[in-house]
Design a binder for these strands. Structure first.
Length: 621
DNA sequence: GGTCACACAGTTTTT
DNA sequence: CTGTGTGACC
């Protein structure tokens, strides 16, 4: 057990063993960050004999949380320690942590434990409800825009009162009217949105210090990953939870902050230093992932950013293969180039697997052509992203039944049920009565409630198993049943489905239970945290990447550049960047100029490109 | 209560 | 171009 620290390099060792006091870890791409976090927890438990349950680790996604906890558990079992539910560390996202806190202690501030968690779609329904009540024309003011505006106000912790004092112009003044009504409707529905989970927890902590103290006492050690992508509320929460024992360790990388469009603020990394002036800062600068060529390219691009520090990475890996640029005639040709390169590589490298390849793009809309061409050449692919499991119609329908049973003030859920059909909604109400009279909430398992409600309204009869599209819907309901079996308590089930995105995997792949032999297609955002031997970055054109909406604002442009940096650093061995002369977009054929990011690569990369050899470097200002 | 036609918008995304 | 959402009409 003493030897596990030997597996770390000097920088990593320093991070793991510095276990007390405020700590900032600047973890570069591919520097073994996840491993360091796992080892840090192991070190606390094994060497410092810290009670595992007094450790809190906050991650960016639930998937990351799950993987982290599994790795910790496994390592502890190797050291003859097994974790139970009671003594396990708390590992989760800010949202799941706050949901748990509010279920337990929300009653202090008037939140009932069976509250519903509304997703973006539900939020828009509530906004529409508010707009109807206020008689605001939904043609001039779109509910979607309003709900986004309210959400970003909340992210900056601007309440309705403050908002109305700063609102300027037609749209903002309308929002100023809608916002307070939205909040009171949410209360009527006994619901909170994702932003409220954080804000209400902060409100609870500030109003009832004894509640805060309970959690401060529980969580003696607080670790927060991906700190560059925290928003203001998450920054506040970190501070509140950690300020008593001051054993807070935040981990992040300025250059990988890519979520400012939803309220993340990389400056939180700097603010932490002001709040904790004695914080120790550790860099993790050795990269284990990529070749020198790839790191050089990444650095060459990201060093153009001026509003944040850039960590320079080094590696012991060899120089590696050249980065290749390709100018395609069209988006089809771009996809065919990719296929050609994959086939070539497969022919000469027996260890090569299609799962070593990722194609990264800026917008989901770009996946369409790629899919068509991949299909045409019979190259298997996995598409990541798109419509999420719990947002599918049939899944939401069934969930609405359960959501309403758990929280009968949730009229948003009920109006969804009415949309299935008036007669079915009537039938359902009969079941609601039975449910209430016999108190099924307490003495029936989720799966039984689900099956009873679904059969009561004959929901499955809406779909025909012989129709392939319907069959997929029925499969999805089956899939949901298997999650329902895992969570016999209805409230817990609902919390799980609102906060945890189901790992998306088509049914046939799931049966085999192995990672499929297929190329991964996804957005740059989706690739965060992943790595592939061979990476294609496609659509490297002004207006595509950087995206057209980001061209005129330096802050937005720098975020695009960070996204480009994230893309480059996903590659372990081989990186391609492609751009098309002409591209069909929204039914129009456009001619785009080559992305500025291409011109920000090291000169040697550009010189080898036929398309660029004789071209002057354009001025982008 | 269900279907069809038209309008219209159209980044990135997890919680 | 394509998916979604709304409103009119049977």
């Amino acid at each position: 057990m003493d030897t596990f620290l030997n597996e770390l390099n000097r920088e990593q060792h320093a991070v793991v063993t510095h276990y007390q006091g405020p700590t900032i870890v600047l973890a570069g791409a591919g520097s073994g960050k996840t491993r360091v976090l796992v080892f840090k927890v192991l070190y606390l438990i094994l060497q410092q004999h810290v009670d595992p349950s007094s450790i809190l680790m906050v991650t960016f996604t639930n998937k990351a949380a799950h993987e982290m906890l599994e790795r910790i558990k496994k390592a502890l079992i190797d050291n003859a320690i097994s974790l139970t539910k009671q003594n396990a560390p708390t590992v989760g996202t800010f949202h799941s942590l706050c949901a748990r806190i509010l279920r337990r202690d929300g009653h202090y501030i008037g939140i009932m434990p069976n509250f519903a968690i509304y997703d973006t779609h539900d939020q828009q329904e509530v906004v529409k409800e508010a707009m109807e009540k206020l008689d605001i024309n939904s043609k001039n003011i779109r509910a979607k825009a309003v709900s986004q505006t309210i959400s970003s106000a909340k992210n900056q912790m601007v309440d309705p009162y403050v908002y109305s004092s700063i609102a300027r112009g037609y749209f903002q003044e309308a929002v100023a009217q809608i916002y307070p009504l939205y909040q009171s409707l949410m209360k009527d529905h006994n619901a909170v949105d994702f932003d409220d989970l954080l804000l209400e927890t902060i409100r609870l902590f500030k109003k009832y210090p004894e509640v805060l103290e309970k959690y401060q006492e529980k969580f003696q050690y607080v670790l927060v990953d991906e700190y560059q992508d925290t928003n203001h509320a998450q920054y506040e929460l970190t501070k509140l939870l950690g300020e008593k024992h001051r054993n807070i360790c935040i981990v992040g990388d300025f250059s990988q902050s890519i979520y400012s469009f939803r309220g993340a603020d990389f400056r939180n990394l700097e603010k932490f230093k002001n709040d904790f002036p004695d914080a120790a800062t550790f860099p993790l600068s050795q990269n284990y992932r990529s070749t020198q060529n790839i790191l050089d390219a990444a650095f060459s691009v990201i060093s153009r950013n001026t509003t944040h520090p850039v960590l320079s990475l080094w590696t012991e890996n060899h120089q590696g293969e050249d980065i290749e640029l390709y100018e395609a005639e069209s988006e089809q040709n771009e996809a065919e180039f990719i296929i050609q390169k994959i086939v070539e590589r497969a022919a000469r490298d027996p260890h090569f697997s299609l799962s070593d390849v990722a194609v990264l793009y800026r917008m989901n809309a770009q996946s369409r052509t790629l899919e068509e061409v991949f299909l045409h050449h019979s190259i298997p692919y996995t598409l990541v992203g798109g419509t999420r499991f719990y947002e599918r119609k049939e899944v939401k329908d069934v969930l609405s039944l359960l959501a309403f049973l758990a929280n009968q003030k949730d009229t948003i859920a009920f109006s969804r049920i009415e949309k299935i059909g008036k007669r079915r909604a009537q039938k359902f109400l009969e079941y609601v009565n039975e449910f209430n009279e016999k108190n099924y909430l307490e003495n029936k398992a989720t799966i039984d409630i689900l099956d009873e409600a679904v059969s009561k309204i004959e929901y499955l009869a809406l779909y025909d198993a012989n129709n392939p599209e319907d069959k997929a819907r029925l499969e999805n309901i089956k899939e949901m049943r298997s999650v329902a079996i895992e969570f016999p308590e209805l409230i817990e089930f609902l919390e799980n489905v609102s906060l945890v995105e189901q790992e998306y995997m088509p049914a046939e792949q799931k049966k085999n239970g192995v990672r499929p032999e297929a190329v991964t297609l996804m957005t740059f955002h989706g690739a965060k945290g992943l790595e592939f031997k061979m990476v294609f970055m496609v659509g490297m054109e002004e207006g595509m990447f950087p995206h057209s909406q980001a061209l005129f604002d330096n802050g937005d442009l720098e975020e695009e550049r960070r996204l480009c940096y994230v893309g480059i650093t996903r590659a372990k061995e081989k990186l391609f960047m492609t751009f098309a002369k002409r591209r069909l977009f929204f039914g129009q054929r456009n001619t785009n100029t080559i992305s500025r990011f291409i011109f920000e690569l090291p000169e040697s990369v550009r010189e080898r490109s036929i398309a660029l050899r004789d071209q002057d470097v354009p001025e982008y200002f």
